[in-house]
Amino acid sequence: MQETIEKGKDNCRVFLESVNAPAPLKKTEDQPLLWPELSWDPTALKPICPLPEGLSHEQVVWSYIQSRYHWEKEANKRLNEENSNFDRELELGVDIAMLHLTDKKRASLGGAIGWPPKFSPGYELLGVSQVKPSRIEIHVKHPQPTNFNKEYQWIFVCLKKRSVAY
């Protein structure tokens, strides 16, 4: 029922009501947490400048979100220039990912260069959950849901390997 209401599926909602489906529970608004302070400028990260040592998981995720947003925004500007190089722009995206992510095989590290950017510095930090001793999940909410995604949330999974957070 909740999903039919959120997605505007009126025919489904009417059907569910006709078979006495229970009404959705009242949803409480998540109160965002404060992102941690960063001692570096994530928009100025370069592949030769690793992240500082001893970071919290939230700092790594926050740096990643800001870095990716800045990269994609700037890549869009550069791609409109005459001498732009799409492959080089994607390489920069991969470089940023490699600074923040584990070396786990992924289908795409660089992602795509689109508009609006995939990540936003307006993302809200909803929570941090330690699922296992070696696994922490960072819950993040999109700041401005669209008509397609009325509410869009991410879970960043942070793993701890050999006493090093990734």
Rank of each mutant, 00 (worst) to 15 (best):
L38F: 13
F86I: 11
A107G: 15
G122S: 13
G114V: 14
V19E: 02
S63Q: 06
R78C: 03
S63V: 04
E91Y: 04
E37G: 00
K9H: 12
E37H: 03
E53Q: 10
Q66D: 01
M98N: 15
R106K: 13
R13A: 13
L55R: 03
P52W: 07
K73E: 13
V14H: 08
N76P: 05
P32R: 04
D103F: 14
Y69V: 00
E82T: 05
G111P: 10
S39Y: 04
L45Y: 08
L45E: 04
V14F: 06
K46Q: 13
G8L: 08
P121A: 05
C49K: 11
R68D: 00
W71A: 02
G114I: 15
E91V: 02
P47F: 08
W115T: 10
T102P: 12
I96M: 15
E72Y: 08
L109M: 13
E81P: 00
A75T: 07
I65D: 01
S56T: 12
P52V: 00
E37I: 00
P50E: 07
P52G: 05
P117R: 06
A97P: 09
Q66K: 12
T43Q: 11
I65G: 01
V61F: 11
K26W: 05
W71Y: 08
V60Q: 10
H70I: 00
L25C: 09
P47A: 09
L55H: 06
F15H: 12
F15A: 12
L99E: 10
L45A: 07
A23R: 08
R13W: 03
P22A: 12
V60H: 06
W40K: 01
H57R: 07
V60K: 13
C12S: 06
A97W: 15
K9G: 00
F119W: 11
L109T: 03
S120C: 12
P117W: 07
P116W: 07
T102R: 15
I113V: 15
L101D: 09
L25K: 12
P52R: 03
E89S: 14
M98L: 14
Y64V: 01
Q31H: 07
C49W: 08
F119D: 00
P24Q: 07
S120M: 04
K118C: 03
W115G: 03
D41L: 06
Q59K: 12
F15V: 07
A44S: 14
Y123T: 01
K26C: 06
T28F: 07
N76A: 08
H70P: 01
E58S: 13
G54I: 00
L38N: 10
V14S: 09
A107Q: 13
I96R: 14
T43L: 04
A23G: 04
V19Y: 04
K26E: 14
L90V: 04
K27M: 11
I96V: 15
K26R: 11
K73I: 01
C49E: 14
R13G: 02
W40E: 05
E17T: 11
G93H: 09
D41Y: 07
